[in-house]
């Protein structure tokens, strides 16, 4: 039977809508207004039409920042998701050690972004940092301020250190909710460890895993503080990710128009990808419901 959808409940979210209007909608409208105008400060604006958008679409700088951003997000997702699931699979199921693991896993998540950046900035230094000093003594040429690969390796390892726990904890919660009957059935069928993972555990944690991927994608796509504190976007522009480039453009150079056009495009990409994730997630839920 098809049930009609009653949309009246939406009026109940009106207070939140008013709050969001001030914190998000008004600034967003302002950004749209700036994107079509030029300013030399003093609140004087001149109509610029679509010029900033064409400039940005042709800008080598924006495309390379986008390329680096996509590379960064893909790499950290490719490491954090399998690693997080692997850790969750190997964590103790109950008792003292399970609690201890959970506490230890949560620790990196509690540290503020700029502190994480500072920790790794010092940790990687060749003169006083444990990591940098050790690598240097081992004869590995590691200097994140001058070497492209070292800078990328540092920000990626830092992100993996900071956020793999989130994936692991979500996957762990998903694994804990699988009823024992499934494992018993698998045992009767003499299913291998891989088959248990592939046909029982993975489908059952798919929902939370999608949430983990969405959260990690969003966070990594908007990342600013951590790489900025560690590398400042360098060496050269090699770790200048989208938001770092955007801040440089808007606040460093005070190019409000181009920066506004840039942020609208940035926002559209995030909106698109989040919508795709959200749709996949809700469809997965519905399929599970059926």
């Amino acid at each position: 039977m098809n049930k009609t959808v009653n949309q009246k409940a939406w009026f109940l979210v009106l207070p939140v809508l008013i709050l969001v209007a001030f914190s998000a909608v008004v600034p967003l409208m302002t950004v749209v207004n700036y994107a079509f105008q030029d300013t030399f400060g003093n609140n004087k604006f001149f109509w610029a039409g679509l010029d900033w958008f064409s400039d940005m679409l042709e800008s080598e700088r924006m495309w390379s920042a986008l390329g680096r951003q996509i590379a960064f997000s893909s790499i950290i997702l490719a490491i954090e998701v399998p690693l997080g699931v692997f850790i969750a699979l190997n964590m103790p199921k109950k008792g003292f050690w399970a609690s201890l693991c959970l506490v230890l896993m949560s620790l990196p998540l509690l540290i503020p972004w700029n502190v994480v950046g500072t920790i790794w900035q010092i940790f990687g230094r060749v003169d006083i940092g444990l990591l940098g000093y050790t690598l240097d003594k081992l004869g590995i040429d590691y200097n994140y301020t001058q070497d492209f690969y070292a800078a990328w390796a540092t920000i990626i390892v830092m992100d993996v250190w900071h956020w793999t726990s989130l994936v692991a904890l979500l996957a762990y919660a998903g694994l804990q909710s699988i009823p024992n009957a499934y494992y018993q059935a698998a045992k009767i069928d003499q299913a291998s460890r891989w088959k248990v993972f592939r046909f029982i555990q993975l489908p059952k944690i798919m929902g939370v895993l999608m949430i983990a991927i969405l959260l990690r994608f969003m966070d990594s796509f908007m990342i600013y503080t951590e790489p900025f504190v560690v590398t400042g976007g360098g060496p050269g522009n090699s770790t200048t990710l989208l938001s770092i480039d955007l801040v440089k453009m808007a606040l460093g150079q005070f190019d409000l128009g181009p920066a506004a056009a840039f942020s609208i495009m940035y926002y559209l990409v995030i909106l698109l990808i989040s919508y795709v994730f959200y749709t996949v997630m809700t469809n997965l839920d519905k399929r599970e419901g059926n």
Binding site: M29, N33, Y34, F36, Q37, N43
Partner: peptide, 23 residues
């Protein structure tokens, strides 16, 4: 400070009107 212009204002009015109509 919001630097309103007629074209952007009309754009947002159309979006707002569409949302209201759909509601």
């Amino acid at each position: 400070w919001m630097a309103w212009t007629w074209p952007t204002a009309i754009f947002f009015l159309i979006i707002a009107a569409t949302l209201i109509i759909f509601t």
